[in-house]
Simulated assay, not measured.
Amino acid sequence: MWHNLFAISNTLRDMLCAKVPLPAAKRRRLEDGLSISTQNTLTLVLTHAARHLELHSLATRIRFIKFTQQPEENGVSAADSMTSILHAFLDDDTVIYAAPVVIPLLVPATATYLALKTNRGKANRQLGVYKEFLTAIEDNYPAATMLKRLLCAAQEAIVEKETGATWTENGVAGAESSIDGLDDLDRGIQFDLSWIDDAMLEDIGLK
């Protein structure tokens, strides 16, 4: 698993340093570097090590798919695989073993779901799993609270942009509101980060 983690990290580094468009041989080499071998998960420790490794692999794969401009459904499939791992953590009540590195690994999948133009119902259900997972670990990791609130803000921004309504945890409600100046998802969303206070920044070492 350790060797696989290094191989995937090297692939991520090479991808970030590469220029597009990629030659076919370079693209195949990078994609081959994302593969991980079947893991022996006979013990609890190995099970969770394998889950973290797979999350790392899937996060890198999602970025590779976007980087190489593959069809949207490829990214959604990888994001769905990541969601299944989060389900496993929640279903066997072992989410307390999730390491803090998991939090940034969730970002590519959440961005994939947020960017979907169709099947928004499924995307929101999947994102509900991410919020449940982040809620379960936020007492230990303040960064989980930050990502969850950014996710909620993004969902609200999407609903306001598309329908003029206001997003709530239970769906869509409220009156029309202006969202002038909101960037498209592909260029990033202007989130309101005023809720991040000095104490939270100190907790995560940013102040």
Rank of each mutant, 00 (worst) to 15 (best):
A111C: 01
A173C: 03
A109Y: 02
K122P: 00
R61Y: 10
L201F: 07
G181C: 01
K26Y: 10
R61C: 10
G171T: 08
W2T: 12
L22Q: 07
E202D: 11
A109C: 09
D180E: 14
E169Q: 14
K207V: 15
S37W: 06
M146Q: 13
F67I: 02
P23G: 13
E138T: 06
T112W: 02
A175G: 07
G205E: 14
Y113M: 03
A173W: 05
L150S: 12
V172S: 01
E72R: 01
L55A: 03
R51Q: 02
N4C: 14
A115M: 03
L22D: 11
N74P: 03
R51V: 01
R187F: 14
T168S: 12
I65H: 07
A109S: 15
F6I: 15
L34T: 08
E202W: 03
P100T: 00
A98Y: 01
V95G: 01
A165T: 05
P23W: 10
G164R: 03
L201M: 15
D198T: 09
T166Y: 08
S77L: 14
A98F: 01
D139G: 05
M146V: 15
G121K: 07
R187I: 10
Q155A: 09
E176S: 14
L151E: 03
C17P: 00
S35Y: 13
E176I: 10
N4T: 15
F89C: 04
L90Q: 10
